[in-house]
Amino acid sequence: MKRLFGLWVLFFALSCLVVPAASQAAEVAQGKVIAVDAAAKTLTIEEFDTNISHENPYGRPTGITSVYRTEGALVGIPPEPGDVVRIAYETKGSERIAIRVMNVSKQDLRGK
């Protein structure tokens, strides 16, 4: 039994390594939604930095705006202009393709 169990663990560990560590490191951005284009499936945000404080619980605005394609992304509570979102994305060429979109301000985990 012990050996069988060991084999299972080994098998799992191996399959973990074999499954190519294909996770191309995604980047994460957080910011305030400026525009949502449902037709083009894009999301424009003004990025925030990581300086979190009492006045700026989601970070301070940096003034940089960027556009994300949300087609095929896992999107939580639908973002609306003014919401703070966190986006995991990959850069393909000059486009930023969103993988997961979290509506930070609306789902505020702490309250759950």
Binding site: A26, E27, V28, Q30, T50, L74, V75, G76, I77, P78, R86, I87, A88, R100, V101, M102, N103, Q107, L109
Partner: peptide, 12 residues
């Protein structure tokens, strides 16, 4: 009903 999605903040 709206699915909740969590994004781990790898920036920090």
């Amino acid at each position: 009903a709206s699915q909740l999605v969590v994004v781990a903040d790898t920036r920090v």
